[in-house]
Design a protein around this nucleic acid. Structure first.
Lengths: 138, 138
DNA sequence: GTTCTTGCAAAATATTTGCAAGACG
DNA sequence: CGTCTTGCAAATATTTTGCAAGAAC
């Protein structure tokens, strides 16, 4: 599905900023920060516009926001299969890359009495394959 | 265990700000924001001092920080039983309260090939018992 | 043509840093 | 007394808002 189709599908106006963001996050295998997305779009847009676009795209569940730390916020394309249960992400503490995981199962049970479950977000920290490989080098 | 004992145990200087923070988070059944902690200490300390104290206490695993959203950061006493595996928290999307959970099990498996697991953070969103009760009122 | 979006400037907020004065041990 | 901590001021950084010009449909 192309960026403009995604926008049409959600009854959002096709603007080049939105299309650009969608193209970038769709084609990336890892989550990207605002700065990274802006770089890949050759800095074409104002930060304000980015924030507003991110917000709109997030509200429409086209992308989702991953807050790894207060100064590490990333965005990823929202493959809606995940979004019903919640999301799981892997954060490499060495290279700070963030990837969506779709293979993590949360045992849904055991909330306190009378609490109502809606959605879970799981952030797994560790070391990614690339950084682990670095370690084994001489 | 009292606040000053906690500090001694970690070889940290006993200062009233640190003791105050520890007292407040230890005696609270939910996680508290900087503003809430400051209020309970009658606004005695500078925000800078809070940030520095939080950092020190977090580095020593005396408290932990829960980033619910970019503008919703809370702190809770770190009961170390949880900290080995990671933490699970419940965020009520209605009243924005945050509580530590100790009864959530994550199926530890299924990372991509060659990834190394270190720790997980789970944030469960939903409705807390108090807010649910509100709904059933007339 | 009407409505939504953008860019700019500016405000609000959160967080960090330098430095001198003060508290801890 | 030497070292770590505090408070103030100021610097950074992030995110939000108002408004007029411009684009989408």
């Amino acid at each position: 599905m192309k960026a403009n189709e995604v926008l049409n599908h959600h009854h959002l106006k096709r603007t080049s900023c939105r299309e650009g963001i969608i193209d970038v996050v769709m084609s990336s295998d890892e989550a990207l920060s605002e700065a990274e997305i802006r770089d890949r779009l050759q800095g074409c847009y104002d930060r304000t516009t980015f924030y507003r676009s991110f917000k709109t795209l997030e509200e429409n569940k086209i992308i989702h926001k991953i807050i790894v730390d207060n100064n590490l916020v990333k965005y990823a394309f929202d493959s809606s299969a995940l979004s019903s249960l919640g999301h799981a992400h892997f954060h490499c503490v060495e290279c700070n890359s963030v990837r969506c995981l779709n293979t993590v199962a949360l045992e849904k049970a055991s909330l306190p009495q009378d609490y109502e479950y809606a959605q879970a977000e799981i952030l797994i920290r560790g070391t990614c394959n690339k950084c682990k490989k670095q370690h084994s080098k001489p």
